[in-house]
Design a binder for these strands. Structure first.
Length: 817
RNA sequence: GCCGAGGUGGUGGAACUGGUAGACACAAGGGACUUAAAAUCCCUCGGACGCAAGUCUGUACGGGUUCGACUCCCGUCCUCGGUACCA
């Protein structure tokens, strides 16, 4: 038996066999317990990149392991097929995005199959199919009925030369990526979904997500950003209008020395009418991108409007300024400024010579208020009747005062904003609305769905081609029948990726968005796996959408749960040269080359071995070959399979069986606790090394060797399924990657009579001793004293304390006698 | 800026609940086999001193807690991800 390991041949053989037997398709009537393993579906960019490979190898390892544990595993795949890159490619190659997208899907499907991933291909979906997005349109019309979808104005990045809206990604250093022109803010009427109505539930249910990484739960909690404070109404001099603001620090209200409003605030616009300098400043403010990072890191600037607000308690006049960091649409577009107790207000006041009035005194210390803002809590000063009150109490007292005088009230505020779902783009799902001059925005009726996107249009880089597509544009008003026009915006692609996990449970259902029985059978997803970059947006929208679907009556809490993903594994990025591998950075590694050279199993093994799943993986071409060499070494273990010459060696058999079963325990633990596959594979390598140096002697010796090889083949199956199946076949086993059961630990094999532990003196390692497994502290101490290497450190010393950590070490604390 | 994560040999990483730092690999160097090469096998491999035995030192940096700290606490620096129109 000296055949070579021929990866390509083996992989083709097993892939054909799996496809022919349809082994990965799940049956609804299967009696086994259900398990739903989901990987984040890919955007069909055309080529599988290493991030995909990592994601899908992790998912496949989990799915295969669960199958081997006896579960009926749903493991589906599909395509997140709408999006900006298709439009960019369409412009570049002068062919419609649909053509490009479908060609990419075909290409990537072949690549995925080449990796030997155990997907149920009969459930494949693509979000650009009308049969898919029609249900998203349907749900949107239901949300309109409930008032959960609405229209409002919002600012976008506008490129004037191209006459188009720019995505944040297309704004580089404040200018358009293609023409280098400074972007402008433009106010457009857009569609929103009221995710803020669900803020409280989205926040509360985070506590139920025990199977999620704490960091993701924390990030979502911060993103939702619940804060309590007060809404305060400032008067306006010579006007009946008020200037309303929200503050989390009503205790600092007496320290307000100016107000700041957004450039787009009506008050700012009004002031600019008679002030050309201010008008120029507002124009300057409109040339900042809408990215939060840009807004927060730019130089803070402002200008007085000439208007004055009236302080609600003192009645004093407070100047109103325009500030470039205050944004219209976040809250009321106005803030109160307390330079003494807010770092940003402090810097702004210093810059423009505005007064700084300290109203909170640090307890037990004198704070130099001219050096820095004091942003913690303390005792009130300079606050009239509130003097001497602690901050916490003052928050309540001042809010109560405002409430009593009808100048404010207690309020809870969320950082979370409503979800803006309309995009001024072509390659997306049409928003199912018709605009009628008489009836306004009317939802398309259910029997008229889907509103199909014309797929033949060619984007030009300017306005969406839908705006010129007469055939699409015109429709009759569903209410009055008059000629009207369709909504020409399309949905944010996060809409499609927010509910695909539920659609997979009944992907071909033509009569409903999801089938409640199928949801009951599979949902929620038992294990979701995807990139950590989705920790907030995608994962928050999907949680929200799941609740929307539940509340639309598509399934009940009992059937589908209140949360879509029970357990979450956020894999780290695949990096090259220390930065995210991405097409736009041109630092991608093509998995194809690795598969062609070493085979899919080597590619799979390496991506799982090179780093723990949740950590970033720094790509290293040279290290891949090591994984290949490991497979070859395992392969050669077959050569000793039928050896049994020599006389039985009970000690060697005991040692190898200990090694086998300790490995089973370790690898199983990796699957059950946190998916440390890199450590699991290292353990399998150690077992392989042990088997390599082991000499099978006699009948029991050969039997132990076979046991070890079979365990190795079985445990390799989730990682390198083709290799494991071939190895298993040569060992006379059933198809290990699909049928065989996961090996069980023989506890008897793990029992050791003697163990070796380290010995420390003063916490420093000075030697080791071999003692009985259950030796007492005195026995261990005696053994240590009998060891000359250790004894010399005890010479002339008095033992103060002895610490025995069972199975680990002995630490002897001494002092000079 | 804000939120989150991370920093351990030349490299990727391991180290259980605070308990022998560097498992398992990669790279490198040396050797065996070979006419030669590939493949394979064996040895060395954090740093300093030392012929060696060994001793000291070492987990980004500075402090602290502890019999004992990569692990816990305080502070600093750096890198990466997200930051609502990339997906």
């Amino acid at each position: 038996m000296s055949e070579h390991y021929l990866a390509q041949e083996i992989e083709a053989k097993w892939q054909q066999r799996w496809e022919a037997t349809g082994i990965d398709a799940v049956a609804e009537d299967d009696a086994r317990e259900s398990y739903y393993c989901l990987v984040m579906f890919p955007y069909p960019s055309g080529n599988l990149h290493m991030g995909h490979v990592r994601n899908y190898c992790l998912g496949d390892a989990v799915a295969r392991y669960k199958r081997m544990q006896g579960f009926n595993v749903l493991h589906p795949i599909g395509w997140d097929a709408f999006g900006l890159p298709a439009e960019n490619a369409a412009i570049k190659h002068n062919r419609p995005p649909a053509e490009w997208t479908y060609a990419n899907i075909d290409q990537m499907r072949v690549q995925l199959k080449g990796l030997g991933l155990s997907y149920d291909w009969s459930r494949e979906i693509a979000t650009c199919h009308p049969e898919y997005y029609r249900w998203e349109q349907w749900l949107f019309t239901k949300l309109m009925e409930k008032g959960l979808a609405y229209q409002a104005n919002a600012e976008v990045n506008w490129c004037d030369p191209f006459h188009t809206v720019l995505a944040n990604e297309q704004v580089v250093d404040g200018v358009c990526w293609r023409c280098d022109t400074a972007v402008q803010r433009k106010n457009l009427k857009q569609w929103f979904i009221r995710i803020t109505d669900y803020a409280e539930e989205l926040l509360a249910d985070l506590d139920t997500l025990s199977g999620w990484p704490e960091k993701v739960v924390g990030m979502q909690r911060n993103w939702i950003g619940k804060s309590s404070g007060a809404e305060v109404s400032f008067g306006l001099e010579d006007s009946d209008a008020t200037l309303d603001i929200f503050t989390t620090r009503p205790d600092t209200l007496m320290g307000v020395t100016y107000m700041a409003v957004a450039a787009a605030h009506p008050l700012a616009k009004k002031a600019a009418e008679s002030n050309p300098q201010l008008a120029a400043f507002l124009d300057e403010c409109s040339k900042i991108s809408t990215k939060e990072a840009d807004v927060e890191t730019m130089e803070k600037k402002g200008m007085a409007t000439g208007f004055n607000a009236i302080h609600p308690i003192t009645g004093e006049r407070v100047p109103v300024w325009v500030a470039n960091f205050v944004l219209m649409g976040y809250g009321t577009g106005a803030v109160m400024s307390v330079p003494a107790h807010d770092a940003r207000d402090f810097d702004f006041a210093k810059k423009y010579g505005l007064p700084i009035k300290q109203v909170i005194q640090q307890i037990g210390n004198v704070w130099d208020i001219n050096a820095a803002a004091f942003t913690e809590t303390g005792l009130l000063i300079n606050s009239g009747e509130f003097d001497g009150t602690p901050s916490v109490q003052a928050k309540q007292d001042i809010t109560a005062w405002l409430t009593a005088h009808e100048k404010g009230e207690e309020r809870t505020q969320y950082r979370l904003r409503d979800w803006l779902v309309s995009r001024q783009r072509y390659w997306g799902a049409p928003i199912p609305v018709i605009h009628c001059d008489d009836c306004g925005a009317v939802a398309v009726q259910e029997d008229q769905l889907p509103v199909e996107l014309p797929t033949h249009l060619q984007p030009t880089g300017g306005a969406s081609p839908l705006t010129n597509c007469e055939a699409f544009k015109h429709a009759d008003c569903p209410t009055c029948g008059k000629a009207a026009v369709r909504e020409l915006d399309t949905f944010d692609t996060f809409m499609e990726s927010s509910w695909y996990m539920n659609r997979y449970t009944s992907p071909r259902d033509a009569g409903a968005m999801v089938n409640a029985d199928a949801v009951a059978r599979w949902a929620p997803v038992d294990q979701y796996i995807g990139g950590v970059e989705h920790a907030v947006l995608h994962l928050l929208y999907a949680r929200f959408y799941h609740k929307l679907m539940r509340d639309a009556g598509l399934f009940t809490s009992e059937q589908g749960g209140d949360e879509p993903f029970k357990n979450l594994l956020t894999q780290g990025m695949v990096l090259k040269d220390g930065t995210k591998m991405s097409k736009s950075k041109g630092n991608t590694v093509d998995p194809k080359a690795i598969i062609e050279r070493f085979g899919a199993d080597t590619a799979r093994l390496f991506t799982l071995f090179a780093a723990p799943p949740e950590k970033e993986l720094e790509w290293n071409d040279a290290a891949v070959e090591g994984s290949y060499r490991f497979l070859k070494r395992v392969w050669r273990l077959l050569e000793k399979l039928d050896n049994d010459e020599g006389s039985e060696d009970a000690a060697a058999v005991k040692a190898i069986r200990l090694s086998i079963h300790a490995t089973i325990k370790k690898v199983t633990h990796a699957f059950e606790q946190g998916f440390a596959f890199n450590v699991a594979i290292a353990a399998l390598m150690e077992l392989s090394n042990s088997l390599q140096s082991y000499e099978p002697k006699g009948e029991t010796g050969a039997a132990a060797y076979r046991e070890g090889l079979q365990a190795l083949a079985t445990m390799l199956a989730p990682f390198v399924p083709h290799f494991a199946c071939e190895l298993g076949e040569k060992l006379g086993m059933e198809e290990v990657a699909v049928i065989s059961a996961w090996p069980e630990v023989d506890e008897a094999a793990l029992i050791q009579d003697e163990i070796t532990i380290g010995v420390q003196v003063q916490g420093k390692r000075r030697g080791e001793i071999t003692i009985a497994k259950d030796a007492s502290q005195d026995d261990a101490m005696a053994a240590a004293q009998a060891d000359s290497a250790i004894a010399k450190w005890l010479d002339g010393m008095q033992v103060v304390k002895v610490i025995l950590v069972p199975g680990r070490l002995l630490n002897i604390v001494v002092k000079p006698a």
